[in-house]
Nucleic acid binder design. Structure first.
Lengths: 341, 341
DNA sequence: CTGAAAGCGCTAACAG
DNA sequence: CTGTTAGCGCTTTCAG
C-alpha cells in the first residue's frame, strides 16, 4: 500500500549507489558491473518500480507515443485500421493515443492541438469529411512533426500517404459488371468534395469507355453528405422507363450498396438477374446480407500497418525525407449480387 | 520552419517578464494584470506556442490521460465502447491511450505496465479471456491507481465495474422462446471460465425453471475457447432423433448464432418455424443476416460512457471511495429468427 | 500583481 | 566502472 511510485532515487539510496548507475543499469547501457546491475534489477522489482516515462520523455524529448485521428472509431474500416496501427506501433515500441474528429473540422483541429501538446512523436490522420482547410496539418509539417495521412488524404499536403487504388478498384468492379452483361450501369457516389469518390467515379468512367459505352449523366448520382440516405435517388432511377432503367448499381461504399439492395428487394427486383449491385470496402455486413454483396475490398488492417511503416521510415532518415504515397491493392470479392461470368 | 517548439521562457524573454507570470497568464490562475495577460496570449499565438503537457504532467503528477485495454479493438462491441469512452473522456479533458491484449494474458500484463509507466491517471480494462490471475490489476489498486473494469470483469477485484445484466438478458431471451412455443431449448455457451457465460447460462436455466421445464444437459454446449467453431456441436444436436432434437438455440453471442443460422439454412431447416435462434450482443450483422436475428442488445457505447463516469467519481472523492458495479440494461430485439408471440 | 528559486524523475555529458 | 551535475519545461511556494 504505497502512496507514491518508487523512483531511481529510492533504488539508489537503498543500494547506496548513485542514481546515474541505477539509470544505466536499468537501461542496460554503457558498462555496469554485472553485480550492481543485478542488485539494481532486483531492488527495482522489490520496490515495484515502474520507470517514469513522463520524466524520461521530458528529458529525451521523445514520447514514443503516436497520435491517431480518425473520423469515427466505431466504423469497421477505421477500427480495423487502428488495430493494424496498434499492433505495428507496439512492435516498434510506440504507444498510441486515439482521437475521433466525428467528421468535424473544428474537433479535428482540437485533436491536433491536444496531440501536439502531448508531444507525440508523429500523427497518423484520416481526415474528417468537413476538412477543406489543411493549415493545421501544414503547421505540423512546419514544426517537423511527422504526419502520415491514410484513406482520407489531401493531395496537396507534402506528407506521406496511404491510400487504396480507388480508380483500379472501381475499374475492376465496373469491368466485371460489363463482362457479366450489364449494359446500363449507374454510379452512386459520395460527396463531390471527396477525393476518393472522384477517383472511383473516374475508374467507373474509364471502364465504361474501355468497353465503348457512353457516359450517361442520368445514371450518375452523388450523395451530398457522407451519411445521406441515397434511397430517394435510387428509387428515382428505378422508376425510369424500362428501357432506360439501370441494370446495375456500382456504389461508392457498402452502406449505400446495402440500402440499394434493400430497396431492390422491397420492389421484388431479381438480383442479380434484373439488376446487379457492387459495393466498396468489404465491410462485414456485405458477406451476410442476402444476396451476399459483391464488393471491392480495402485492406484496412494492412493500411494501418503501412502507415506506421512510413512513419518509421521517416523517423529513421529524417534528413533526406521525401513524402511517399503507398497505394494499396484492392480486390474484387465476387459474391451473389452480381451475375456469373 | 522552427526546429523546436516555443516555451514559456521564449514568451517571457520577448515580453521581458518572468516565466511565472507567463505561466499564470496562460492558465488564467491567480491575479494577472489584464494587459500583461493579453500580451502573453498574443505572443503565445504568434509563436505557435503549444503548452508542453509532458513537462506539466511531470510537475503536477497527473497526465490527464487514461489507459484503455481491450481484447480486440476491431470487434464491434469494443470499438463502440471505445468510442463512448473517447467521447466522454474528452468531455472531461482526458486523452486516451489504447492497447489491445489480443486475448493474451501476457500481453495484457505488458499493457498494464506500459500504461503505468506512462503514468496514466486511471485504467479502463476489459480483460482477456485467458486472464485468470489478477495480481497485475490488484497491484494497480495497491498503488491507488483507479481501475474500472467493463464487460469482461472479475468478481473478486475491489474495483468499480460496468457490466450488462447478463442473467436478465438471457432470461428474457429464453422466456420469449418459451412463450412462442419452443419446448426444447438448447444453450450454446462460451468458455466456462467466463463470468458472463455462466451468468447467461443461469438466466437460461432460471427461465426454464420458471416455466416448469427441466434442465437437459444434453442440450447445453460450451465452447472451449472464445473463437471456437461451434459447428460440430451444433450439428450433433441437429442429428439427434426428431423427438429429442432442440427446437430453439439460445446462443452466447451473435457470431455463434450466425454460424448456427447458417448451418440450419444449409440443412434447409425452417427458421423460425422448426427451430428458433437467439443471439447476444446485437452486432451490426444480426440485422442484416437472413432471417434477421433476434438478439439481446448490449449498450456498448453507453457502457463506455458509464465506465468513464465511474472513474470520474472515484477521482473526485478518492477518500471515501467504495467500488460500485453498474449493471446496464439489455433489450431483447425481436427480429425474424424467432416466432411471433 | 510579479519574480526568484526549488524541484517533478530522469538522462547525458564530464570527470574521475 | 561510477558519481556529480546540469538541465528538459513547467508549477508553485515564498517573498516582495
Amino acid at each position: 500500500m504505497k502512496n507514491t511510485e518508487a523512483t531511481i532515487w529510492d533504488i539508489a539510496i537503498k543500494l547506496n549507489i548513485s542514481i546515474s548507475t541505477v539509470s544505466r543499469a536499468l537501461r542496460g547501457v554503457a558498462d555496469v558491473n554485472p553485480a550492481t546491475k543485478k542488485a539494481v534489477e532486483e531492488m527495482a522489482k522489490r520496490l515495484n518500480y515502474e520507470p517514469n516515462r513522463v520524466a524520461q520523455s521530458l528529458r529525451i524529448k521523445r514520447t514514443n507515443t503516436l497520435g491517431i485521428i480518425v473520423p469515427e472509431i466505431a466504423l469497421h474500416f477505421f477500427s480495423s485500421a487502428i488495430s493494424g496501427i496498434q499492433e505495428e506501433a507496439s512492435r516498434h515500441g510506440y504507444s498510441i493515443m486515439i482521437c475521433q474528429s466525428l467528421e468535424s473540422y473544428e474537433t479535428e483541429k482540437q485533436n491536433v492541438h491536444m496531440l501536439a501538446s502531448n508531444r507525440v512523436d508523429g500523427m497518423l490522420i484520416s481526415m474528417s469529411s468537413q476538412t477543406d482547410d489543411f493549415s493545421h496539418i501544414q503547421q505540423l509539417v512546419n514544426k517537423d512533426i511527422p504526419v502520415v495521412l491514410f484513406d482520407r488524404v489531401s493531395e496537396s499536403l507534402p506528407v506521406s500517404k496511404v491510400v487504396v487504388d480507388d480508380h483500379d478498384g472501381a475499374f475492376k468492379a465496373v469491368d466485371h459488371l460489363v463482362k457479366t452483361g450489364c449494359k446500363r450501369i449507374a454510379y452512386i457516389g459520395g460527396p463531390n468534395s471527396f477525393y476518393i469518390s472522384n477517383q472511383r467515379k473516374k475508374g467507373y468512367l474509364d471502364a465504361l469507355q474501355l468497353h465503348g459505352m457512353d457516359q450517361n449523366d442520368e445514371l450518375i448520382i452523388h450523395c451530398r453528405e457522407l451519411h445521406d440516405d441515397p434511397s430517394i435517388q435510387v428509387r428515382r432511377l428505378l422508376d425510369l422507363p424500362r428501357n432506360s432503367r439501370p441494370d446495375a448499381f456500382f456504389c461508392f461504399n457498402d452502406p449505400i450498396a446495402v440500402t440499394t439492395l434493400q430497396i431492390l428487394k422491397s420492389k421484388l427486383v431479381q438480383i442479380p438477374d434484373e439488376i446487379s449491385v457492387i459495393g466498396f470496402t468489404n465491410e462485414p455486413v456485405s458477406a451476410f446480407i442476402e444476396p451476399s454483396l459483391t464488393t471491392v475490398s480495402q485492406p484496412s488492417h494492412a493500411m494501418g500497418k503501412k502507415a506506421i511503416e512510413l512513419f518509421i521510415e521517416q523517423r529513421q532518415y529524417p534528413d533526406h525525407f521525401e513524402p511517399v504515397t503507398a497505394v494499396m491493392k484492392t480486390d474484387l470479392i465476387i459474391r451473389h449480387s452480381t451475375r456469373q461470368l
